[in-house]
Design a protein around this nucleic acid. Structure first.
Length: 456
RNA sequence: GGCGCGAUGGCAGAGUGGUCAUGCAGCGGCCUGCAAAGCCGUGGACGUCGGUUCGAUUCCGGCUCGCGCCUCCA
């Protein structure tokens, strides 16, 4: 029985899909005006893992993750560089896909782009006007009237008055209420624009997710996710728009992942304290980064530091070391058997990946003790559910060396030379070779089947 | 100012009303030509002050500290 923490109720709830056996899920993706940073990596990996778990649990999942390819920042970038905005967005979409593949994030079933949905957004805005939830201004903008939606603020746990009390920006004089937000923004000269009944312009940020979500998943679907910073105003506004336009419940379960931090501070574009995924991947194996993310519960803060990444690498090394030399055949997991049952209990408890990983480490110890091929297969299969342990152990253990001086052939040659020295009981020479390789970050390990090597 | 979340051993990080997290690091041992890996054993924790309870790290309240949201942000 899967339970998950619903931001809407602020408690764990038993998951009951709208349609038995099916899950319809939407996650807010990236605004593509720059490279993805580790905060984005966390969203990608966390919701990928959630989808993998839902599928492993037998659900037929439709997973939508959108791309915001038109907004103020994209326009700013285009104006600053003189490049057409579509070139910028395409470049960063490609980069995002590269990052995803590296992190073993499976592609969503649908990846709609905002610019493909402008027509449906216009329909939705008209419908909101017709229903008295929105109003156009003389300047060609259209705003959502938050006072027309009685439960506005429910997701963020605040009342309209509480939200207004903390208002920190100068309200637009054309707004009826300071918290009214733009559904449609009139175009300024030189900006990308689409025709509309209210004049040329572009959609506000929030309306795109309402339009794409309801088109691909229906007006009422199961799960909506994103980073915690989207709770207000983005998701609050999505609810107001979707329920205002369709007159039915929008989403049953709202899931939000915690932030990545640097020195106990939120990693963010505005603070400038971010590391891009590709920067980090130059220093650490992508699977190590994935494990680093899954070592913390998805709702907890995740502090980024070299120490943390180093520990994740050590942890992954332990798992792969247990698999080394085993015949871990592919296997269909029997969720009723002992180890998978423990793993399942952890994952069913609001996707508790740290607990699930603890099960894997205990299983790894058991594999080390018994050298049992079936247990090794179980370890590999359970790791696979988390998108981990998919490689040959040697491929991981020998990957990522920084010493170009020591390609595998040279290492093998030195191992052969050392073997000969050992045969002649020339231990001084044998140890010298080991020391030489160790200085290059390569460890030799003498085992019953001969000498193996790995990189530190 | 309003609202919310958190505080666990050297570090990271789960969890529980009374027996174990787990990983890294430490210590002792086994194995090894020496190592490494692995195995066996082992020390070490629940911010603070009260309350509930036979018993609280776990439930409740105050306090302190940290973080976040109230503006674009995953």
């Amino acid at each position: 029985m899967l339970t998950l923490y619903n931001t809407l109720s602020r408690r764990k709830e038993v998951f009951v899909p709208i349609e038995p056996g099916r899950v319809r899920m939407y996650v807010c993706g990236m605004t593509v005006y720059d490279y993805c940073h580790l905060g984005h990596a966390r969203v990608l990996v966390v919701f990928d893992t959630i989808v993998r778990w839902l599928r492993a649990s037998g659900y037929q999942v439709t997973y939508v993750r959108n791309i915001t390819d038109i907004d103020d920042k994209i326009i700013q970038r285009a104006q600053a560089s003189g490049e057409p905005y579509t070139h910028i967005t395409q470049r960063f979409i490609d980069a995002m896909h590269e990052d995803e593949r590296a992190l073993n994030v499976l592609p969503p079933d649908h990846e709609p782009r905002a610019t493909e949905y402008v027509g449906r957004m216009l329909d939705m805005i008209q419908s909101l006007i017709d229903r008295g939830h929105a109003y156009p201004t003389e300047t060609g903008d259209v705003y959502y009237a938050v006072r027309s939606f009685p439960s506005y603020g429910r997701l963020s746990g605040k009342t309209l008055d509480e939200l207004i009390a903390g208002e920190r920006v100068e309200p637009d004089p054309h707004k009826r209420d300071p918290l009214d937000f733009a559904l449609w923004k009139a175009a300024k000269p030189g900006e990308p624009a689409w025709p509309s009944p209210w004049g040329p312009g572009r959609p506000g940020w929030h309306i795109e997710c309402s339009a794409m979500g309801s088109h691909l998943l229906g007006p009422h679907f199961d799960i909506h996710g994103g980073g915690q910073d989207l709770i207000f105003p983005h998701h609050e506004n999505e609810i107001a728009q979707s329920e205002g336009a369709h007159g039915c419940t929008f989403v049953n379960y709202w899931l939000h992942n915690g932030f990545v931090r640097v020195n106990e501070e939120k990693m963010s574009k505005s603070l400038g304290n971010f590391f891009t995924i590709r920067e980090v991947l130059r220093l650490y194996d992508a699977e190590v980064v994935r494990l680093f993310i899954l070592r913390a519960h998805y709702r907890s803060p995740l502090n980024y530091s070299d120490t943390q990444l180093d520990e994740a690498r050590a942890a992954l090394t332990r798992l792969y070391t247990a698999l080394r030399g085993t015949e871990a055949a592919a296997l269909t997991i029997d969720w009723a058997s002992a180890w998978p049952a423990r793993f399942k209990a952890a994952m069913d408890d609001d996707f508790n990946t740290p607990e699930a990983l603890a099960v894997l480490f205990e299983l790894a110890s058991e594999v080390n003790r018994t050298r049992s091929a079936p247990l090794a297969a179980e370890l590999k299969a359970l790791g696979g559910v988390l998108g981990l342990l998919g490689r040959e152990p040697e491929a991981f253990l020998q990957a990522g060396g920084t010493h170009a001086d020591y390609p595998p052939e040279r290492i093998e040659a030195l191992i052969a030379e050392r073997l000969e020295a050992r045969r002649k009981r020339d231990y001084a020479r044998a140890d010298a070779i080991r020391a030489q390789l160790k200085a290059a970050g390569i460890v030799l390990e003498d085992g019953p089947q001969g000498t193996t090597w790995r990189r530190l």
